[in-house]
């Protein structure tokens, strides 16, 4: 079995976990939730194996490099970081509601990688510009950041639903954590994401400076990562202003994640020349 096959299987395991989390959440049943946790653990383990296998395969091909060099590989890694961070959050907060939003995100990332015809899952040799340890640090930190923001996004959505006290619907969230805990969790995930996005932008800048002599050149991908960073910096400061708790923070966290998604996918639609991530 090669890594692409293994990761296709992992895609379906993520899908199963997502399905079980959602079932457990909607029907307020414990059992599917407990199974979901185990399925999610299997998915993350398989995901780890897939990444490791791909790494080994690239060495067998004689072009060995960390599997973080194109869209396919970064999406697989994205799913993996969402999975890991989510499982840690689940263990810490002893609650599975967030899984109903986090695991579908991991599933969508890896499914898009495995199934989209636009994405090449071949192991390609590195072009000269991508041969840099800074690039590896850049990709890893960016995606840890993105994953934390993804979970903050999920939490914010649950939070907003919970705030809409519309009788029947409310009951769907009976087992989700307390609003104040959700608010706190959003903040923790945003700070984690902000730290890693900051490191991600910085390692990217250092890489750019070592590759072509300028740490910042306002290309659209760089600029969009900065826009994302501005939005989350706004969120961190808005929390200090009276009246900016809860709901508005949740909206900012959702807007921030939209910016993350645009930085990741949308930028390729814009004119520009970021060599990385375009295929």
């Amino acid at each position: 079995m090669n890594s692409s096959n293994l990761l296709s299987i992992v895609t379906f395991i993520y899908g199963t976990a997502a399905f079980l989390y959602i079932v457990s959440w909607i029907f307020k049943k414990q059992m599917p939730g407990r199974i979901a946790t185990w399925v999610a653990i299997i998915a993350v383990v398989g995901n780890t194996g897939g990444i490791a296998l791909r790494w080994i395969e690239s060495y067998r091909l004689g072009i060995g490099h960390a599997p973080l060099s194109n869209m396919y590989e970064s999406l697989v890694f994205f799913a993996w970081t969402i999975g890991i961070i989510y499982l840690v959050v689940e263990q810490t907060y002893k609650n599975r509601t967030i899984g109903a939003l986090a695991t579908p995100l991991a599933f969508m990332a890896i499914a898009y990688a495995s199934l989209s015809p636009n994405i090449n899952n071949q192991i390609q040799p590195l072009i000269p510009a991508l041969k840099s340890n800074w690039l590896i640090a850049h990709v890893i930190t960016c995606f840890i950041g993105y994953a934390a923001f993804a979970i903050a996004f999920g939490v914010s959505i649950i939070y907003l639903f919970k705030q809409r006290k519309t009788g029947g619907k409310q009951s769907m969230f009976v087992r989700s954590p307390d609003s104040s805990v959700l608010d706190e969790l959003t903040h923790q995930m945003v700070t984690l994401g902000f730290l890693f996005l900051t490191i991600g932008i910085i390692t990217g800048a250092v890489w750019a400076n070592s590759a072509w002599g300028s740490y910042w050149s306002w290309d659209p991908k760089e600029t969009w990562s900065l826009i994302t960073w501005f939005i989350y910096a706004t969120l961190l400061h808005a929390r200090m202003m009276r009246g900016w708790e809860g709901k508005r923070i949740a909206y900012l966290s959702i807007i921030g994640f939209m910016a993350v998604i645009f930085t990741y996918f949308g930028v390729n639609l814009l004119p520009g020349l970021h060599s990385y991530g375009s295929g």
């Binding site: 306002w218 659209p220 600029t223 969009w224 900065l226 826009i227 501005f230 939005i231 910096a233 706004t234 400061h237 808005a238 200090m240 202003m241 910016a259 930028v267 814009l270 004119p271 520009g272």
Partner: peptide, 24 residues
Amino acid sequence: SVKLTVVLLLSLAVTSILGTIIPQ
């Protein structure tokens, strides 16, 4: 004031979009 910070950071975020839509 932090209010000004929020306004400035958001303005920077929004205006920065322009330069990514219009090639520089």
